[in-house]
Design a protein around this nucleic acid. Structure first.
Length: 261
DNA sequence: ATGGTTGCAGCGCAA
């Protein structure tokens, strides 16, 4: 067991296209656990051999073309559960496993745009089910790290231009309120807790209109920690350099380090 | 700029 456990989350926007970057990241950043989203492949097409060759185990949920999530871990994984508990979901958006003493999830929360469509309703339904599941984990005194693409920018500080994004599903008050409901249960969002006033700290830059070059990003990828895990939080970062590589994902990795886990 | 880009699938849709 390492003295410090490093857990990263990264929406890769296709594991097939991004496999080279993911393998490079495992070698250079050496997270103990890497949570992936938008893998866009069925479970049986997940490239586990290349990942296992670097000393990681892999558990995945997926579907053809869209969605998909995975957990990569240097440490043994047990009790893998696919799908958000208590929510009938045709889409592959949630996977959870036990690593050491932690319940760890990789989740891809629905985007919800446009907000006048049933996609937004689906997003809010998904968030209510997620909140209920977090409540259950807390009731069990289960230590956890729930990481992924939440598709919620919690506050205006997390958005390059709040006015431009006001009608976007990631900024809507209904989505922000449900995100806060999770926080108010007693959950800690790692990045903002250690960097309360840091601006220009984004995890996503649109491919369109030169968003990366103009610094027009949003912070929607998060690591949520249960109370005893939050007590062990020592460092958090966003690996923005990944966005400047050739053929990048539109998201970059967000990571945290936990001591004494 | 009622645009712009990427990935997938397959000649539109999701992000």
């Amino acid at each position: 067991m390492p003295a410090v456990l490093k857990i990263a989350t990264w929406n890769v926007n296709s594991i097939k296209v991004r496999l080279g970057h993911v393998l490079d990241y495992l070698r250079s950043a050496t997270p103990d656990v890497l949570l992936l989203q938008e893998t866009k492949v069925p479970e049986d097409q997940f490239p586990r051999l290349e990942i296992e060759a670097l000393g990681y185990r892999a558990a995945a949920i997926g579907q053809r073309g869209y969605n998909g999530a995975a957990i990569l871990s240097k440490l043994p994984m047990s009790d893998v559960a696919r799908g958000l508990p208590g929510f009938e979901d045709e889409q592959a958006r949630y996977i959870e496993a036990t690593i050491a003493d932690l319940r760890i999830a990789s989740l891809y929360l629905p985007n919800g745009n446009p907000i006048d469509s049933d996609k937004f309703t689906y997003k809010l339904d998904w968030m209510r089910a997620f909140r209920n599941h977090v409540r259950s984990l807390l009731a069990l005194d289960q230590a956890f790290v729930l990481g992924g693409d939440y598709n919620v920018a919690p506050e205006d500080i997390d958005v390059f231009d709040p006015a431009t994004m006001a009608e976007d599903a990631v900024c809507r008050p209904e989505a922000r309120a449900l995100f806060r409901e999770v926080i108010y249960l007693g959950v800690t969002e790692a990045f903002r807790t250690l960097h309360p006033d840091l601006t220009q700290a984004y995890s996503y830059y649109d491919y369109q209109a030169g968003a990366w070059e103009k610094g027009r990003g949003i912070r929607i990828d998060h690591l949520l920690l249960s109370p005893t895990v939050a007590d062990r939080l020592v460092q958090v970062g966003i690996d923005r350099a990944q966005r400047g590589l050739k053929q990048p994902s539109d998201h970059v990795p967000v990571w945290c380090e936990l001591e004494g886990v």
